[in-house]
């Protein structure tokens, strides 16, 4: 799990006190960035190319054809175990809900992507580190069912520290649930594309995210099973440069393409059009 990253998450924020709302700084190279341009550049630093995290809503806006997205996610989390650590899970949920305006860590719905009818599911890292509990698992399974029933492609944007600890074994079971639901797409020859963003680890990588027909990863994204801290503790050595980054996964054969976010929609559309049996031959559209 890469939950440690959650605690030192830094949002692109105005460090300059004089004009806090206009400027921000690149997390990687420190370049001063004009916020409006930074946003238009999809939160990719124009100087060094670092891909900053973006919200689930912005992801939807970036990938769905304009005006086509209809949200279908609607489930709310419970606290089936009455989980309490240093704080009750119920309180944590409320805080995340207040902070994100979302019931749980996923935003999804139907839309067109380059004209291809799709179900688009986006995990929200800002909500409990994008962790998968019962709601995320059920929404994914329902999204798959909807795609199968309506002959849509499935696109999932993963951003998650893994399975949610506060729902323990029930979170673990979501791995099996989501994976098995994908069989519905196989049976109907419907395409499934996953996009792995920073970070995608643990039970999310080790279930539905790894099983897409085509897997994209964003440059520099941390992707893996165990989080780097756990591995460092286990082997008691420093980890090699670039370990578990998107480019490392491409080299080791785990993902199909590492694609710059500014080209992502275009490549996604090409993949969907290639795969979807309902889309006619139309190269280069």
């Amino acid at each position: 799990m890469a939950l440690e990253r959650l605690f030192r998450r830094k949002r692109p924020s105005g460090e300059n006190r004089d004009v806090p709302e206009l400027w921000t700084k690149c997390e990687a190279c420190g370049a001063q960035l004009y916020k409006k341009e930074f946003r238009e550049n999809l939160y990719v630093c124009p100087k060094c190319g670092h891909h900053h995290r973006m919200s689930a809503a912005e992801r939807v806006a970036m990938l769905a054809d304009e005006g086509t997205f209809q949200e279908t996610t609607r489930l709310a989390p419970l606290d089936p175990l009455g989980f309490v650590d240093t704080k009750p899970y119920a309180e944590r949920l409320q805080a995340y809900q207040k902070e994100t305006g979302r019931k749980d860590a996923i935003l999804g719905g139907t839309c067109a992507i380059g004209g291809v009818p799709s179900v688009l599911l986006v995990m929200d890292y800002a909500f409990a580190g994008g962790s998968m509990g019962s709601v995320v698992g059920e929404e994914i399974a329902r999204g798959v069912e909807r795609a199968a029933a309506e002959e849509r492609a499935l696109v999932i944007v993963a951003a998650s520290g893994g399975a949610r600890m506060q729902e323990a074994a029930l979170s673990l079971m979501q791995m099996a649930k989501t994976v098995m639901s994908l069989d519905l797409l196989w049976a109907k020859r419907l395409p499934y594309v996953s996009i792995l963003t920073d970070p995608t680890t643990g039970g999310v990588t080790a279930s539905f995210a790894a099983l897409a027909d085509v897997i994209f990863a964003e440059p520099g994204a941390l992707i893996g099973f165990a989080g780097p801290r756990v591995i460092r503790q286990t082997i008691r050595q420093e980890l090699p440069e670039g370990f578990q980054r998107a480019e490392f996964l491409l080299k080791h054969g785990m993902v199909d393409r590492v694609t710059d976010r500014r080209q992502l929609k275009g490549e996604l559309v090409r993949a969907l059009r290639h795969l979807h049996p309902g889309v006619p031959y139309a190269p280069g559209v």
Partner: peptide, 26 residues
């Protein structure tokens, strides 16, 4: 748990777990 190590990650620990879940489910 599955081994958390460099070689396991290089050889796709997450991928094989997902595949094994899928294979057994089928």
């Amino acid at each position: 748990g599955a081994y958390p190590g460099v070689s396991a990650e290089e050889r796709g620990q997450a991928w094989v777990i997902a595949q094994s879940i899928q294979r057994m489910g089928r």
